[in-house]
């Protein structure tokens, strides 16, 4: 039995680039703490802080932290189970055979 092969992280560049340029307010996220699933635009964001802190509107747990340094940025989304992002249709939906 052969081991499954894998690609290096460069493979993610294209797909991630497509995803990370999305308007976040159009995305839906799930709170890791309470399971609330809703628009990321509904988060409570605290900006009078060393970074931006986005909290779940239901349980107030942290879903997103974004820190911007002069030449670097950090994004911590461990409080977000998933992001559901609207994407353009990849290819025309195949019709019935």
């Amino acid at each position: 039995m052969t081991e499954m092969s894998y690609l290096d992280g460069n493979m993610l560049d294209g797909p991630m680039r497509e995803l990370l340029t999305v308007d976040l307010s159009s995305a839906v996220g799930r709170c890791e703490n309470c399971g609330m699933t809703g628009s990321m635009a509904s988060l409570h964001v605290y900006s009078h802080a060393p970074g931006l802190v986005g909290r779940c509107p239901s349980c107030e747990e942290v879903m997103v932290r974004l820190v911007r340094g002069p030449d670097r940025a950090w994004l911590d989304m461990r409080g977000t189970t998933f992001l559901q992002v609207p994407m353009p249709m990849e290819q025309p939906f195949p019709g019935p055979l």
């Binding site: 605290y46 009078h48 802080a49 060393p50 802190v53 909290r55 107030e60």
Partner: peptide
């Protein structure tokens, strides 16, 4: 004395 806060 600025008030900074990361949450409620």
């Amino acid at each position: 004395f600025p008030v900074l806060s990361a949450g409620p």
